[in-house]
Design a protein around this nucleic acid. Structure first.
Lengths: 256, 256
DNA sequence: CGCTTATTTGAGAGAAGTCAAGTACGGTGG
DNA sequence: CCACCGTACTTGACTTCTCTCAAATAAGCG
């Protein structure tokens, strides 16, 4: 039973602390009022308020496979992802890993903890973030209640996603898990733009997907193959998936 | 593969929206400043503020097996549990159920959603709650920033517990899951008082425990039996467990 | 006390895991 | 630009943990 530590992380359904709500500002580039730096919170703030945030933030970039913050470290910063993909994970003493979420541009992390981080954040691709000292940003919540409310909403959304992921982990079969994941990633891919319709771009490794879905690499790989053989998806390399029958994939994801 | 709907819910690790922080006021009865009604938020508020809350809240009690709110219902209230045990659950179309949390006196629910509840809340035991119209309570957050911050902290703690539960669901074995659950329930039992040391009181059915841990009733029952045979626990009826070797149980829970 | 529901136990089946190879991809250097 | 190397991914054969189906026992309720 030596499920040793896997080097390449996972795939995760829930969108941790996603900032861009669906109601407006889906594409940052199209949102005149958004600071490029703070794509996550722009909707709730005016220009002056954004400048206030700029004062206490600084850039923080990492390359693929590098660690942004580690489980057990003092939780000093709140991170806002501007570019790239991040994975959050937790480990058991023997190295078994669970990826609790993948994060994309606009997402946040670093709040759901008290004094020390309860998870590790690593760069799946090269990542650009800006980060705020937690102490200072929480002070700002008092001055800028809009900001505080926005962050609260994000946390609440995140919690809901976490519950969905629990249902997936506890009750879905391997096939259902992978179908759910593909739909999730297709949504993400569409939201971030730059890919054709019904395309899912998977920046993470199979091992990351496995650790996100509570499966092994081999099982994930086999399920990919089966879905392709059934004609539901087409694989264009390991990281690009075309969803050929979204309807059917959706039904499989819910076990219907 | 007909995992039909189970009638009695589950067991859950994470303490959803637990209100009573460990730093103070562990026993409501011992906390002079606490309103009995609002045991959850008392720590952050003075008497006048508690009265403000009383104005917009009303009692809401249910018997065992009754539903407090259902997945899909319009999310109109925020609930604060005063007595009893509640389970939160989500279901797949074919009836497979995942319990995302058990709630105890002092816990909250009803926030982690936008317009409609994303889970069902049911009474595991007779339950007394008081509930607030969400609309009104969120207004109060502006007037009483202490209250808002407290609720935010609770949500954040809840999210962290959700991540722990994902690790359990995705990566732990049946034995590890049950050991983790027993430790969790022992903590709860101690915090709520009225039971001897190293005692875990489990108000929920085996089927609830199973749906909380992502297992079947049979597997849960077998693991209970095995732990008892190993001399790690003693079962006094199905709902009372004595932890005979907490140390060992803890190690098993983490797979060490 | 009898009936219903919950829990335990047993035997067998199956989905996912483990171990082991083979294949393909991506990056580097000649 | 292409060959080589290491890593990632896929595939195969076999094992095992948990689930399923079935029945017996125990507990709770009227």
């Amino acid at each position: 039973m030596d499920r040793s530590v896997r080097k390449t992380p996972p795939g995760q359904f829930r969108s941790n602390l996603r900032v861009i709500s669906s109601d407006h500002c889906t594409h940052h580039s199209a949102c005149e009022n958004c600071s490029v730096r703070h794509v996550a919170m722009c909707n709730a703030l005016n220009e002056e308020e954004v400048n206030l945030l700029n004062e206490i933030s600084n850039d923080f970039n990492r390359d693929t496979k590098q660690i942004l913050c580690a489980e057990g470290d003092p939780a000093e910063h709140l991170y806002n992802i501007r570019a790239g993909t991040v994975r959050l994970s937790k480990m058991l003493p023997d190295g078994r890993r669970q990826i609790t979420g993948f994060l994309f541009p606009g997402d946040f992390f670093g709040l759901a903890c008290k004094d020390i981080y309860s998870y590790t954040a690593e760069a799946v691709t090269p990542v650009e973030t800006c980060r705020f000292p937690r102490k200072k940003i929480t002070e700002k919540f008092r001055e800028l209640p809009n900001l505080g409310e926005r962050v609260f909403d994000m946390t609440t959304t995140e919690l809901q996603s976490a519950h969905d992921q629990m249902l997936l982990l506890g009750r879905k079969t391997a096939r259902e898990k992978l179908c759910s994941f593909l739909l999730y990633m297709a949504e993400k891919t569409a939201a971030l733009g730059g890919h054709p319709e019904n395309h899912a771009y998977l920046p993470m490794s199979r091992s990351d997907v496995a650790d996100y879905l509570g499966l092994t690499v081999e099982t994930v790989s086999r399920q990919f193959t089966k879905l392709a053989q059934s004609g539901l998806i087409r694989l264009e390399g390991a990281h690009h998936v075309i969803l050929l029958d979204r309807e059917a994939i959706h039904d499989l994801a819910e076990g219907e």
